[in-house]
Amino acid sequence: MKEETIVSGRMNQLIDPHLHIWHWQISLYLFLGGMAAGILAIAALYFIRGREKDYKTAVRITPFLAPFLLVLGLIALFIDLRHKLFFWQLYTNIRLQSPMSWGAWTLMVITPVSFIWCALHIKDIFPRWDWKFKILFDLESFFNKYKIALAWVMLIYAIILGIYTGILLSAFNARPLWNTSILGPLFLASGLSAGAAATLLLSKNTMERKQFARVDLVLIGIELFLIIHMFMGFNASTQVQIEAAKMFLGGPYTMSFWIFVVILGMLIPALLEIMELGKFHIPAMMPAVMVIFGSLMLRFIIVYAGQVSRWLY
């Protein structure tokens, strides 16, 4: 029998920090950031490809969610900080090796961009909108002129943001569950999927809806592929990663992960979307809400489980 004991009484969640480093705030922050990234990337992509007319909701309407999501995300991040008054330190330092740092800076870029994008389309929502000041009219026309460039910036930063939500975690060698390069693409795909779902939810145009059901299906397929790959990778790796994977393969997170994330968040909505494409009438809301919920749960579960996984020594 092997017995490992901390004899100095450290077995205390107040002291063992890995039990309580990050709570709902970071999970929510990662989810909101990911979903905003998905929405903005899709909008930018379709705009660049000149499909604005076909996918009006995706390009012009859904992005209105993004600033809210981003600001909410930033608020969540802020709430998570324990030394809040020193928040500004994030923006007096550029630390290239710190994902947290470049995440903060990415948000610094993409949040205003998302606001500008919305401003350019505000008349789609409020047809009688008036900027009132000349400078604002000038700005609007300036950005309209360089909208393609703006779209490129938005696309690139949205993808960085989407990947960042995963990299933030996967940079931590100390937490075997997070320490996989698949987390970046997986969170990006999940963010895109949530973004596509948002349009599915908002769009009144059947063709657009069908298109986004198809997009979502592809994304779900990619996510499933990545998830399977992730576990295969873990199981082919070191003991600590095998232990980490066990949490999902029979361990404490098995039920929540497979039920909430995979079945309710991917398989069932995928099925519903297939049915929708196959001309069954399904309320579009259902799969969309499920996908978004699944995407949220994915963040929660990975953030929590990751903190539990650790090196053994």
Binding site: P17, H18, I21, W22, I26, L77, D80, L81, R82, H83, K84, F86, F87, Q89, L90, N93, S98, P99, M100, A171, F172, N173, A174, R175, G306, Q307, R310, W311
Partner: peptide, 14 residues
């Protein structure tokens, strides 16, 4: 006086 309490370092320490 520089730490914002983000917890990244705690998460990163094996």
């Amino acid at each position: 006086n520089k730490c914002i309490g983000c917890g990244a370092c705690m998460a990163s320490c094996p």
